[in-house]
Design a binder for these strands. Structure first.
Lengths: 100, 100
DNA sequence: TTGATAGGCAAGTATCGACTTGCCTAATAT
DNA sequence: ATATTAGGCAAGTCGATACTTGCCTATCAA
């Protein structure tokens, strides 16, 4: 459970995929592949991306739906909530301007 | 930067250490060692724990202060904020009771 | 000073995980 | 029917990393 989540986040390529899905949810495998290649200069094979997506799906960060021969990938950030629930983060830390 | 954070969170032992520091911040290496051993049945060497703490410190999740021959470890959850800033999480997802 | 306590450094092992290559299935197009 | 497009499965390689063992330094107590 939590193990899958943190393992999924551990890889920089997977985090970039999450970025891409944040920008545009519901992309296909090939769409993600070409975006990683063009926008992020990531030379990675299609299977590589596919395996990353599988890890993200196991973590619950990505959900998929099939339509014909296409498989669309949707982002689900809900699992991230358990991180800040497990280790509470102060509202605003750091040197804040004194409330005027 | 972000890489260090997610790498630090990727290991289950390190997450348990964060749990321990959440419960009681400012523990020494030996204190953490014995807690991992007794409370979590983690048979890990002192050096193992020390290396984990170093990774957590690199990520900014743990800060240390020395006093004499003792080194105290304090939790700092602030770096976690960038996670939910990078991938925004809806306030409360899932089937919520309708606000009465 | 001697011994005990708290921690650090470095090298070695061994497992895990990212990535690739090669082949296979299913849906659309000509 | 054949070719093309979208994706899946499996084995193999290679580098990263968690963990250990062995030795070394520094602080405090007797």
């Amino acid at each position: 459970m939590a193990d899958d989540l943190f393992k999924a986040l551990a890889d920089p390529t997977r985090r970039t995929i999450l970025d891409e899905l944040t920008e545009k949810s519901g992309q296909t495998l090939f769409e993600i592949c070409s975006r990683l290649s063009t926008k992020h200069q990531l030379g990675i094979s299609r299977q590589g991306v596919s395996q990353h997506l599988a890890v993200l799906e196991t973590a619950g960060l990505v959900e998929t739906r099939r339509e014909g021969r296409c498989k669309f990938h949707d982002l689900n950030t809900a699992p991230l909530r358990q991180i800040t629930e497990r280790w509470p983060v102060p509202d605003t830390s750091g040197p804040e301007e004194s409330t005027p």
